[in-house]
Design a protein around this nucleic acid. Sequence first.
DNA 1: CCGGATCCGTTTCGATACTG
DNA 2: CAGTATCGAAACGGATCCGG
Lengths: 147, 147
Amino acid sequence: MPEPQPQSWRSACPVNIALEILGDRWTLLILRDVLLFQRSTFKDFQESPEKIASNILADRLKKLQQHGILESHRSESDARVIAYRPTTKGLDLLPVLIELILWTDRYEETGAPRRSIARLRRAPHEVIAEIKAAFADPTKVAKRSGK
Amino acid sequence: MPEPQPQSWRSACPVNIALEILGDRWTLLILRDVLLFQRSTFKDFQESPEKIASNILADRLKKLQQHGILESHRSESDARVIAYRPTTKGLDLLPVLIELILWTDRYEETGAPRRSIARLRRAPHEVIAEIKAAFADPTKVAKRSGK
DNA sequence: CCGGATCCGTTTCGATACTG
DNA sequence: CAGTATCGAAACGGATCCGG
């Protein structure tokens, strides 16, 4: 087999599809908060350090749900709160997010704690498994550790 | 050690920095072409199926160079042509790109050929090594295998 | 021809204010 | 708390022009 490459599937390369879903600044920030930092409510996201505007946030949350990446339901502990959770499809974005973080940490100045990054680099699979397990277990999702 | 998580490094999470570099539709498409499909010239990128406008393309190429992801030099074979190549930093985006492609292929309808995707899924490291080797070898970079 | 730069109508974004 | 309405600013994208 002298020719492993099947002669350019560029026009069929899935990158462009991914970009229609994720290719804007805010969407990935929301996913960061949901997947990595256990945020779940509209207010949580609004309080992100990047100060997302409420209309943009509403729009992106809607799109993320339409794409089947997030789902929402009323909180059981507090009925007036709507909690957003990742679907399986959403959780499967963790590898992308982690690779992105590792790349950025390698080449840009960030204040990220060494221990967290080191663990992501050493055992990403382990971290992913933990996060998935946490979302699979209802009790862990319901209560976000105080503070 | 009962507490592995150092209490939210969200504000220091490198995702936002990555997004300032990559967080628009066109940048990643250019990188797709450079890293995965051996495109290297302005004209190559213009001919992408997504039809990027020339002013936008020029702007993104400049930014990618400013961020040290691409570098440019005049082609040796044809002096009027400028060839863009990924730097090491640029090549290290391959894992991100690959994870993105695998995710998209898993959940969205794409026309990507099964063999290419299967290989990316089975042995991403191998593919990455090949691509890096190709860029390290000047002869392979210079001539893009004809059509 | 190649790699852009410039101009300009149109769309989209995003900050603020307001509402259920 | 979880959004909508409004409106100015920015980005986009198409066409055209230009220097080498």
